[in-house]
Every structure is written in C-alpha cells, then in structure tokens.
C-alpha cells in the first residue's frame, strides 16, 4: 500500500490551508485528488497542478483508478496527501482495502441538501451517515482546518 500521510475531506480540495499549512508541516510530495467528475476534466487538472507549489506533484483520478493506485507498492520517499470532496469516497477507498487510522475533515460548503454540521462544515443526512460508518470501522475523523488548530473529534459532534 502507498504511503499516505494525510487523508482529508475538503470540497475546495487544493487551497490556502493545504498549500500554506498542511504541506509545509508534513513532507508531502504528491497530492492525489479522488473525484469521478473532476477526473474527466483536463482543465481542472491544469488548475490544480498550477496551484500546488513547486516540488509537489498533483494527480487526479476517479475512484476505481485511485483504489488501484493506493494499493500498489509504495515508492521510496513518496509521501501522499489524499484529497476528496465527500466522505463517501473515503468509505469506498476503505472498502477497497485502504488502511488508514485517521481522516481530517476540513471544509464542506453549504448547499441546499446540506445542513450546517460544525463551523464551516455542512453535511447532508447521507454524508453524516457516511461519517458514522467510517467511525464505526475504528477510523477517527478529526475536524481540523490547519495543523495548528486543536483537534476536534467528529465522533463528539454526531
């Protein structure tokens, strides 16, 4: 299995908190964005590549390819940050065999289907159910915008 340092749910994917905080603190050199819709969009890949700082590779995959990639042999010195928009994708990766102990919850923007969950996180009923299922598997979900912030266990917010 690949060496995944951070797994993060954040529907803005690569943005200020990721670029100025997370990858400064963790030795990340590869960002894997898993999103079926975006993976078809070459323009978006160009945007995300441009947004990542020099020395950090960005790859954009759909869920099937990502699962295969993550279960592959680790490369020496390869430190991956996984970014997804919604918890269901993490669930899928875990089902496919990805072993992680912690998921970081960043932000999920308000939409019509979503209710406010915590600070800048809004979630639909389905998404909350997905949080629960992930936690039931013994994986901690931690709400944390940047590494400097206090860790808030999502279990306590449900």
């Amino acid at each position: 299995m690949k060496n995944v340092l951070i797994t993060r749910i954040d529907d803005r994917l690569i943005h200020g908190q990721v670029v100025t905080a997370w990858i400064k603190v963790y030795p990340i050199n590869k960002i894997l964005i898993i999103d079926d819709e975006l993976s078809k969009n070459q323009l978006m890949l160009r945007i995300y590549k441009a947004a990542a700082p020099a020395g950090v590779e960005v790859i954009l995959m759909n869920q099937m390819d990502a699962a295969e990639f993550l279960l592959d042999e680790p490369l020496k010195g390869e430190n991956i940050m996984v970014l997804v928009k919604v918890p269901e994708v993490i669930e899928m990766m875990i089902e496919k065999g990805l072993r992680i102990s912690k998921v970081i919850l960043g932000g999920m923007g308000a939409t019509e289907k979503r209710k406010r969950f915590n600070r800048n996180v809004s979630a639909s009923d389905d998404e909350v159910a997905s949080f629960k299922r992930i936690i039931e598997k013994g994986i901690a979900i931690i709400y944390q915008l940047v590494p400097n912030d206090r860790e808030v266990d999502v279990k306590d917010l449900l």
Binding site: L13, I14, H15, G16, V18, V19, I47, A50, A51, G109
Partner: peptide, 18 residues
C-alpha cells in the same frame, strides 16, 4: 466558481500572505 476558488486561494495566500 467552485473549482477556481480553492487553487486561487492557495496561490494568493502563498504570495500575498506568505
């Protein structure tokens, strides 16, 4: 809108604030 806002925040925070 939603796909550009993240990357531009990343670049902007790095250059202006960082």
């Amino acid at each position: 809108k939603s796909s550009l806002m993240g990357p531009l925040a990343g670049i902007g925070d790095t250059i202006d604030g960082g």
